[in-house]
């Protein structure tokens, strides 16, 4: 077998959907470690196993806290342009009645947590995706939109899921081409703000997708906005 040239190795490593796989490649050899440092995306999802271990005093010490892993990954990355973090599927299905969980160790849209990692990479980020842990996020209103819009000036794509969001302090993101809000709770006044400020065309969509099953009249199951050219900057 011919050895793969570094650009091809980078092409392959960039397609790993999980930064844990990439991390194991880095341990394999110096050469791979060097190439892996060039990968421009960070993708990290908390597994059910990691979550359950972190909840039990007996196993807690066996796993690194998820937020710490992510913060370390971002701070050691020189080139990240795209970050994607969240909880894995089995955790998404849990409802608030299933587990009692007062902790915020997986409240991923928490503004304190995001402020820990975002500023150092904000300027070059093109894409952010956060899929929060509903059990912890549904009763904590997050001002992450304000933080992201104030420091991510090159952001093209933003996706937020399973979170309670505030639009206080949200400013226009002129570069943004795609905004996805999925299973997101917005308070009435916030929703009005979002609608009044240039989202006219999609208000119908928002209203059509209200869902009351969580007891919020203001719950958006899915909002997918792709901005037309020329529409930039007017939406908020």
């Amino acid at each position: 077998m011919d050895d793969l040239p570094p650009p091809l190795i980078l092409e392959i490593l960039s397609r790993l959907s999980d930064s844990a796989d990439l991390a194991r490649c880095r341990v394999a050899s110096k050469a791979l470690n060097t190439v892996a440092a060039e990968v421009r995306s960070i993708n990290l999802y908390c597994s059910f196993d990691r979550y359950t271990k972190s909840r039990s005093p007996a196993t807690e010490s066996l796993v690194t806290p998820f937020k710490k892993i992510f913060t370390d990954l971002v701070s050691s990355s020189r080139l990240a342009e795209s970050v994607s973090l969240g909880v894995e599927k089995p955790l998404r299905g849990l409802s608030y009645d299933d587990v009692e969980d007062e902790s915020d160790n997986l409240h991923l849209t928490g503004v304190d947590f995001v402020a820990e990692w975002l500023p150092s990479v904000a300027g070059r980020l093109r894409s952010i995706s956060i899929s929060d842990f509903w059990i912890q996020s549904c009763w904590r209103r997050s001002e992450v939109l304000s933080l992201i819009s104030s420091c991510c000036h090159s952001l093209l794509e933003l996706e937020l899921k399973n979170a309670w969001l505030s639009v206080d302090g949200l400013i226009a993101m002129p570069m943004l081409t795609s905004l996805t809000l999925e299973y997101v709770r917005l308070d009435d006044e916030d929703l009005n703000k979002l609608c009044q400020n240039g989202l006219e065309g999609i208000v119908d969509l928002i209203e059509a997708r209200f869902m009351a099953s969580y007891g919020f009249a203001d719950f958006i199951t899915k909002l997918n906005v792709t901005f037309a050219p020329g529409f930039h900057g007017t939406w908020l």
């Binding site: 077998m1 793969l4 194991r24 394999a28 050899s29 110096k30 050469a31 791979l32």
Partner: peptide
């Protein structure tokens, strides 16, 4: 990671 080495044809350097 041992298998990854083999796939990429790299040694543990």
């Amino acid at each position: 990671h041992q298998d990854v080495r083999e796939i990429f044809g790299v040694e543990n350097d």
